[in-house]
Design a protein around this nucleic acid. Structure first.
Lengths: 224, 224
DNA sequence: CGCCGCCTGACACGAGGCTGACAGGCGGCG
DNA sequence: CGCCGCCTGTCAGCCTCGTGTCAGGCGGCG
């Protein structure tokens, strides 16, 4: 789960990142509305945490533009305590929920989970492929009903592939998602990771398309 | 006819504008990818001329975003002479045609006319020819409804020919897209590749124009 | 009829991908 | 503070399969 955090105050941004990552999300921070708009349009995120009190480009402007462009991205807005006007306008502009600063991280995570659960037609928070089930809320993964422990990286990889079920994802894109960088050396790291993950999941879940990339098949793979 | 030109180099941009307007089009220039995306989303254009060598935001990102958002806008990309990799990725990402810099204005106008003629650009990410379907999003190819495995090279070749449906493409140009170089020896490699691809696709999909090149016919070839 | 362009089956090589082993790093726990 | 565990990147070896090459065949055009 990738969350785009739009927050100009470095300390708060760092706190949010820490809290989100502790909760199992991947957080990316941008400091102003212009960058937020750009990132939201060019990359794929599962949700956005948007501080309305941005210095340069108004957070509300970002939100309106997003909604105007029909971007179905769950947005949680952060407002000042006395910013009731902002809150109303934010909800009007298409925010999914709001949070008043200062707030407790647990509350942020809880609200994020809530809007992730009820958004975008991804009705169910659990992803399935064959005998494999992945619950995005609890981060629990089971194979044929058996709870299975995945490492952080393995989980990210699996979740990403499940999110794109049926599509072939290039190795470069996977590496890009797992870290930021991309290199030749690291190609093998992905392969090693895949080997370990496949050993835990069993055969038929993650397939290789030589020269194309990897995918988890759309149909009920693994149990025919 | 409104054409959106995305080009950061002012002199080239001015040249293109002049050439397009002389040919009877209305040209609008933007200098970076972010602006291009915004304009393409908020305004209506008949085609886009997109320089892939943009400084800040990568032109390919714009293209992918457009296709991902199901924007049915014909796109002609401009690439550097040695940017064959860019070209391949551009076509893969849903460009309708490409032009190598430097180019003559007459050629730009001619290619623009061509892609405007076969209307609708590539609104849908799936390309069709007879019984063959190619989904650029999933990289899946099917023949008469049957999923068919293509190798990386076969896929590139087919995708390229489908993007240029109805046009004869010279062997040299095909080789140029599949690899960087172009040699006599390699000519046969292309023929071998074609043989293998045709065997998978069945007859009537890829035709040979002796002495000219290859094409996949524009009309519903293969199923009459 | 003979040349030339194109097709195709066979084959061999090398790149791409897999995996077991190892090492550095980081955090946890005593 | 130091030991020990797990996680993850790197390396080397192996295997598979994709792809180029070769040799020969088919057919059209002069």
């Amino acid at each position: 789960m990738r969350i785009l955090v739009v927050e100009d105050e470095p300390r708060i941004a760092a706190d949010i990142r820490e809290g989100l990552e502790r909760a199992g999300y991947v957080a990316e921070i941008v400091g102003d509305g212009e960058a937020a708009w750009f990132r939201a349009e060019t990359e794929t995120y599962d949700a956005m945490v948007l501080d309305l009190g941005l210095p340069r480009l108004d957070g509300l402007g970002v939100l309106r533009r997003l909604r105007g462009a029909d971007v179905a991205l769950p947005v949680l807005i952060l407002t000042a305590r006395d910013g009731w006007r902002e809150r109303v306008e934010g909800i009007d502009a298409g925010a999914d929920d709001y949070l008043v600063k200062p707030f407790r991280m647990e509350e942020l995570v809880a609200r994020l989970r809530a809007i992730l659960r009820r958004t975008a037609g991804h009705a169910s928070p659990v992803l399935r492929a064959g005998a494999v089930e992945l619950d995005t809320r609890t981060r629990a993964v089971s194979v044929a009903g058996r709870e299975t422990d995945l490492t952080a990286l393995e989980y990210r990889l699996l979740a990403f592939l499940l999110h794109r079920q049926g599509q072939v994802v290039a190795a470069g894109e996977l590496l890009d998602h797992l870290h930021g960088s991309d290199s030749d050396r690291e190609a093998n790291a992905l392969e090693a990771l895949l080997t370990r993950l496949r050993r835990k999941l069993g055969p038929g879940i993650i397939e290789t398309r030589r020269g194309h990339g990897y995918l988890v098949p759309a149909d009920s793979a693994g149990d025919p």
